[in-house]
């Protein structure tokens, strides 16, 4: 160990090394995704895990988020006498920001954490070594279907979140507060541009990749944990780290992509 370097430099160095390992992990998984053979069965299993099993939570979250946005915007817009803009306000905020970000955060909590813990336990219990010994590439068997499923499911779940949110907003604005239904939808279709849809879609795509990448990488490299914790403590630590890191990465990338596209 080089003791001449100050602690801060050592920390930066180890963070960069870890980032490099994570980058190589993603690179190798993407190469595997592109190259045959493809396993449709394991992809479907992961789509069911990340997608289908997250559906109820996404629908409930989308509904209430749409309702609360309509509630807040209605209260604000009434003060300016522009209630007719309610539809555009709800639509734009859901499509550009809240839909992709909140969906990604929900999937991180529901599927990302479970995935990280599962792979971490596989590492602790030698199951990953067992895969290697059976000549089964963990990148192909475990990670490729998960990453692909993340990229497929998160945009679809985001779309569902947005649609349900728009319906929730409609319920509060039109049914409860009596806003004209025509102006709710007309306002939305007038102001939402293709660029907004592109922004929402590209964000959800990137978030899908980020969530699964971080969860799988953290679990797979549990033994590289700098605190040296293995066993159940190690699994709990990396799962927490994966959720925190994913959430920060999602919020950071959200700003970055917004700034790039706007």
């Amino acid at each position: 160990m080089n003791t001449n370097k100050p602690q801060i430099l050592l920390s930066i160095e180890s963070a960069l090394v870890r980032l490099g390992i994570g980058g190589l992990f993603l690179f190798e998984t993407i190469i595997i995704i592109v190259l045959p053979p493809y396993s449709l069965k394991s992809l479907i299993k992961q789509v069911a895990f990340i997608g289908a099993r997250s559906l109820s939570v996404i629908v409930i979250a989308g509904l209430f988020v749409g309702m609360v946005i309509a509630l807040q915007f209605h209260d604000t817009l009434v003060r300016f006498g522009s209630v007719s803009l309610l539809g555009s306000a709800v639509g734009l905020s859901l499509i550009r920001e809240l839909g992709p970000v909140l969906t990604a955060l929900m999937i991180t909590g529901r599927a990302g954490s479970a995935m990280c813990a599962e792979i971490g336990i596989m590492r602790v219990d030698n199951q990953i070594d067992a895969l290697e010994c059976m000549a089964i590439d963990p990148y192909r068997y475990l990670f490729a279907p998960r990453i692909l499923a993340g990229i497929i499911c998160v945009p679809i779940l985001t779309t569902i979140f947005i649609l349900v949110g728009i319906f929730g907003g409609y319920f509060v604005g039109v049914v409860l507060f009596g806003v004209n239904p025509g102006s709710y939808f007309q306002g939305m279709s007038d102001t939402v541009l293709n660029r907004d849809l592109f922004m929402g879609f590209s964000k959800s795509l990137v978030f899908g990749l980020l969530i699964v990448w971080i969860a799988c990488d953290k679990g797979f490299h549990l033994h590289l944990d700098k605190h040296g914790a293995f066993g159940s403590e190690g699994v709990s630590r990396i799962t927490t780290e994966a959720v925190v890191l994913s959430s920060i990465a999602i919020l950071f990338t959200d700003y970055l992509l917004s700034a790039l596209i706007l």
Binding site: I121, N126, A130, E132, C133, A135
Partner: peptide, 22 residues
């Protein structure tokens, strides 16, 4: 890596804990 996997098809490893997929 690919050659190592090819070779490993001819060996079997039984782990202490069984290492079965849960």
């Amino acid at each position: 890596k690919s050659n190592l996997y090819e070779l490993r098809k001819h060996i079997g490893v039984a782990f202490q804990s069984g290492a079965l997929f849960s």
